[in-house]
């Protein structure tokens, strides 16, 4: 239960407060091209929300539905516990690489600043936001209030639209794995399991889906948000940045 003081914003980092205030009155009815998006990906020590920690954040901006190759956000964070061996096998980050990296709480203010005013985009974003939110809550007593879009849900929505409206010999897509979608949609392929390269891969998927969903009538941000919340496959209603 949140205390009254917390409700009123006391004890929260000023960036968190500013972020919350900005999105209170955020207009979602503008065309998709008019928003700035931050497409992000994190690498974790474990998927277990209790023990897992963020070890790397990668993010790129999308403006006017164009991916901005310059000014990407990319950094390693030193976890409080040593890296489990099995996680190294997945993201290929070695203990030596993060030995001298700052702890996550030192990185987060820059990241919040980077996301200022932007719509957050990720693939199965719930995972990233859960772990980021855990750290934000611990160190800054609050979470990000940014509006978000999940490319996994957008892909589900697009596939569902195609299934209903477009005759196709393609088999029904059951896997919404980022790499499989990139192959299916003939996107340029990036290195797997590197936070920045995965973020760029997600950004390609995002602009691709945004253009495709525009043809189905999703013209504004609100339209896309409705579209993702209607995605037919397992829903994640209710998850928050916390």
């Amino acid at each position: 239960m949140k205390t009254l003081l917390e409700w009123l914003g006391f004890g929260k980092h000023e960036l968190i407060v500013e972020n919350r205030n900005y999105f209170k009155t955020f207009d979602r009815n503008k065309p998709l091209e008019d928003y700035e998006y931050v497409v992000l990906d994190t690498e974790l020590t474990s998927l277990d929300p209790k023990h897992g920690e963020v070890v790397s954040i990668g993010a790129v901006k999308v403006k006017n539905l164009r991916i901005m190759m310059g000014g990407a956000f990319c950094c390693y964070a030193r976890p409080s516990r040593p890296l489990p061996k099995d996680s190294t096998l997945i993201h290929r980050i070695t203990p030596q690489q993060i030995e001298n990296a700052p702890p996550l709480e030192e990185i987060l203010p820059d990241f919040i600043e980077y996301c200022r005013g932007a719509v957050l985009v990720g693939h199965f974003l719930k995972i990233d936001l859960t772990f980021l939110g855990k750290a934000l809550k611990k160190h800054f007593r609050g979470t990000l209030s940014n509006v978000w879009l999940d490319t996994l849900k957008l892909a589900q929505s697009y596939e569902e639209y195609k299934r209903r409206h477009v005759y196709s010999d393609d088999p029904v897509e059951n896997s919404f794995n980022l790499n499989k979608l990139a192959v299916k949609y003939s996107l340029p392929l990036f290195e797997k399991h590197d936070a920045l390269e995965d973020a760029i891969q997600t950004a390609y998927l995002f602009v691709y889906l945004a253009h495709k969903l525009k043809t189905t009538g999703c013209v504004t941000l609100k339209d896309l948000m409705v579209s993702q919340s209607n995605a037919a496959l397992p829903s994640d209603q209710g998850y928050s940045t916390a």
Partner: peptide, 11 residues
């Protein structure tokens, strides 16, 4: 040069 690039999708 790569850092200055933008990527656009043309359906």
């Amino acid at each position: 040069f790569v850092d200055s690039l933008q990527v656009e999708c043309f359906p």
